[in-house]
Nucleic acid binder design. Structure first.
Lengths: 194, 194
DNA sequence: TGCTACATGTAAAATGTTACATGATTCG
DNA sequence: CGAATCATGTAACATTTTACATGTAGCA
């Protein structure tokens, strides 16, 4: 159901082609939503049948003709009504956590390596997000009501990646301690935020 | 594909019934994986056909007979092979972020209220996780190699919830500033982690 | 010449949700 | 007496992924 609103949300900012929507879901908004191209093209057709969007074909030289979709008044109203319904919290499905859960079946070295690989992915991602944030925060986005939303999601992406990196470091540290000889007294997890 | 390994992962810790698996996906492991009961029962049947799990029926007085599933050697080997394949990063689909992205279409008050509602959900969740963490860290989990994985995922859940709460606070603060009259100079987002 | 980007789609398969179905016990 | 918990399943529907399908242009 939400794919519909994901597309309407992007079109509320700018008219876009299916291909451009796909690129966005793969890229900048990929942090909080994703859709594959068959899904997008099917949904655009459905939205158009429904009157939520309209398209105009744009011919190009040397490139296939593209269809640029825009939000209609009906679509904008539907988006607005949906926006006002409180969101249910995200249902996480994190393969890495699934593997972490059973990491006791692996050696300490193997488990550590898997986490370190993951850390690198999020480190790179964090860097990209931070660069974009630095670029955006030097411009006028913060006073542009319509663009502020995109900036806020970027901030969430930054926090998500950096909290994942922190977890990786913490997990690796605990695995290392585990790998050492057990001291005679019971150990406690070090205190994190209150 | 991963549901298969999600079930095998839980069974690697303890033999469980379908109903108990469902409870876990709804509860303690719900932070990083979820499955509905029709999915679970179907997958258990498939896993048994495949030889990955076996079950024994346990009759109870006053309650329906339950089937307790255990991991077989084949299942354990399959789980181990899967564990060694590096996980792809989580594909997030966060309805709240989708709404945040277009929050410029709402008033500042409406947008703030939506975020505040979300903050409360994660605050409650964080509290539960932290209580569990305090309980676990006072026991011997940290020196139990097999139970450490579950503890590590709990730490991730805590970091996830608390970073979400931090984001809510940051977003609400930015919306408030936005609501005030624009000061003449260009404002910057406050600096976060380096 | 072979790969990538651009651009749109269909078809089949896998995965996941919601509704239907049953029935005993315990708690308020 | 009604609701929730325990316990398992089927059927229909919706969503998502992967493979198939086509064709031009630019780059190495």
């Amino acid at each position: 159901m939400s794919l519909r609103y994901a597309i309407l949300s992007l079109l509320a900012h700018d008219p876009l082609s299916g291909y451009e929507l796909m690129k966005l879901f793969d890229g900048s908004v990929g942090y909080f939503w994703h859709a594959s191209h068959p899904q997008i093209y099917k949904e655009l057709a459905r939205l158009e049948r429904n009157g939520d969007v309209t398209h105009r074909s744009v011919e190009q030289r040397g490139r296939p003709t593209k269809k640029i979709y825009s939000l209609s008044d009906i679509g904008r109203k539907a988006l607005l009504a949906w926006l006002r319904i409180p969101a249910r919290p995200q249902r996480v499905k994190d393969e890495m956590m699934l593997k972490t859960f059973s990491s006791g079946l692996l050696s300490n070295e193997e488990a550590t390596e898997l986490i370190a690989k993951h850390r690198e992915i999020y480190r790179a991602r964090l860097q990209t997000y931070q660069e974009l944030e630095r670029f955006l925060s030097s411009g006028p986005i913060l006073s542009n009501r319509l663009r502020l939303g995109g900036y806020l999601t970027l901030l969430r992406g930054i926090r998500h990646a950096s909290s994942y990196i922190d977890w990786c470091d913490e997990a690796i540290a605990l695995l290392h301690r585990e790998g050492e000889q057990h001291p005679p007294r019971v150990r406690h997890a070090r205190r994190r935020r209150s």
